[in-house]
Simulated assay, not measured.
Amino acid sequence: MEHRTPLILIVDDEPLNARILESMLRRSGFATLTAHNGPQARELAALHPVDLILLDVMMPGETGYLTCQLLKETPQIADIPVIFISALTDTESRVHGLECGGVDFISKPFEKAEVLARVKVHLRLRLTYRALIEAQAQRLGQLQAAQQSLLVRPEDLPEARFGVHFAPVLEAGGDIYDVLPTGVGVFDYIVADVSGHDLGAGFLTSALTALLRQNVNAATAPEESLAMTNRVLTRILTNGAHATLAMARVNRTQNSIHLVSAGHPPPVLARQDGSMELVPAEGDILGVFDTALWTPQEIAVQPGDRIFLYTDGLVEGFGDPPITRDQGIALLWAAIRSTASMPIAATVEAVHEYIAARKGPAEDDSVLLGIEV
């Protein structure tokens, strides 16, 4: 892993405050950059390998809160930790700063000992985070576990209420699925498609499965788990290899689904009242951009509602005539509607058979994962 002097970006419209911070940080062995407004800060952060940002809250024009929000919306710099510096000490101001993406607060007038202590804590956390990513990348580079041994069957987790049809074209395919219990009445359901359809892709799907199991947990939002997973994948995927993924966190206690998609086909939501809808969610594919972004969807559901995750091999065909994705999704929609009265496992099998009969021989790996709330 790279070893260099930590670089701290100071953002303050008061030159005196900036010089004081710059002096104390440099005397402690840190490198610094200084900006006097938000736009300048974002420009410097994009041009230099900044490890930490000290950001004044009260600045003319663009406040520190807005600057932080805009930093977090810029993929290549979104992961830089931000510590707010402010004379505001009320709880509401501090909470607002954390909601904007900040990790800590330093009160004005600042004390040298407090500034250095907080800076060192967050630099250590950032270093630990990077080291964890590198360690996971090294372990996954040696992973040779068989893909089939990692698959969860409905009978293994009956309380998860799912059915699945997994059809790899080769013995080790490029598609995967997983079901992970992450809380009382809470399960994460994952379907992914790794580019490529050879044994190399099969190896990577095993690696992706293991990586997701390391990073998915009850304390971490699905999009945060994907961020950690993506950072490792960018280090082990080469030659344009990537993965798409859909992840649904189903909370049966709160009757909700938290959906995240990384460039994946939109799930189909079938409600008990007979209504159906596609649920698109925007997000970058995995393994290409070092810092990617996803926009989660929160869906209110009721017991008995169903959501179906799938890979493009289920809904696309390259025969004569070819089947476009839109045509395949129309087939999927019709099949789900016609099998709504069946148990979820039977529905999944019937839907797959319905589509396969109209597509002809399989040309690509496919997964269909049906979940009942």
Rank of each mutant, 00 (worst) to 15 (best):
residue 4 R to E: 01
residue 12 D to C: 10
residue 13 D to G: 14
residue 13 D to E: 14
residue 14 E to A: 12
residue 22 E to W: 05
residue 25 L to H: 05
residue 26 R to V: 12
residue 28 S to G: 14
residue 34 T to R: 13
residue 44 L to M: 15
residue 46 A to S: 15
residue 47 L to D: 02
residue 52 L to D: 02
residue 56 D to V: 12
residue 57 V to Y: 02
residue 58 M to C: 06
residue 59 M to C: 08
residue 67 T to R: 02
residue 75 P to Y: 13
residue 78 A to L: 09
residue 78 A to Y: 10
residue 79 D to W: 00
residue 83 I to V: 14
residue 86 S to V: 03
residue 87 A to L: 06
residue 87 A to S: 14
residue 89 T to P: 00
residue 92 E to P: 01
residue 95 V to D: 06
residue 100 C to E: 03
residue 106 I to K: 08
residue 109 P to Q: 10
residue 110 F to R: 04
residue 111 E to H: 05
residue 126 R to I: 05
residue 131 A to I: 01
residue 133 I to W: 06
residue 134 E to I: 11
residue 134 E to K: 11
residue 138 Q to C: 04
residue 139 R to G: 11
residue 141 G to T: 14
residue 145 A to E: 14
residue 146 A to E: 15
residue 162 F to K: 01
residue 164 V to Q: 00
residue 165 H to V: 14
residue 167 A to N: 10
residue 168 P to T: 02
residue 170 L to T: 12
residue 170 L to V: 08
residue 175 D to L: 09
residue 176 I to M: 06
residue 184 V to M: 09
residue 191 V to M: 10
residue 204 L to F: 08
residue 205 T to R: 13
residue 208 L to A: 07
residue 210 A to K: 06
residue 210 A to R: 13
residue 212 L to A: 11
residue 212 L to H: 09
residue 214 Q to M: 06
residue 218 A to W: 04
residue 222 P to T: 01
residue 225 S to W: 07
residue 229 T to Y: 12
residue 235 R to D: 07
residue 238 T to I: 03
residue 244 T to S: 14
residue 255 N to L: 00
residue 256 S to Y: 10
residue 257 I to M: 09
residue 261 S to F: 02
residue 261 S to Y: 00
residue 264 H to K: 02
residue 267 P to N: 09
residue 271 R to L: 06
residue 273 D to K: 07
residue 275 S to L: 03
residue 279 V to W: 05
residue 284 D to L: 05
residue 284 D to H: 07
residue 290 D to H: 07
residue 301 V to W: 06
residue 301 V to E: 07
residue 314 L to K: 04
residue 317 G to N: 03
residue 317 G to T: 07
residue 319 G to H: 08
residue 328 G to I: 04
residue 330 A to V: 00
residue 332 L to H: 07
residue 334 A to I: 08
residue 334 A to Q: 12
residue 336 I to M: 13
residue 337 R to H: 14
residue 340 A to L: 12
residue 340 A to W: 04
residue 341 S to I: 05
residue 342 M to V: 03
residue 343 P to T: 00
residue 346 A to S: 11
residue 350 A to F: 03
residue 351 V to P: 08
residue 353 E to I: 01
residue 354 Y to A: 06
residue 354 Y to F: 13
residue 356 A to K: 07
residue 361 P to K: 01
residue 362 A to D: 08
residue 364 D to I: 01
residue 372 E to A: 11
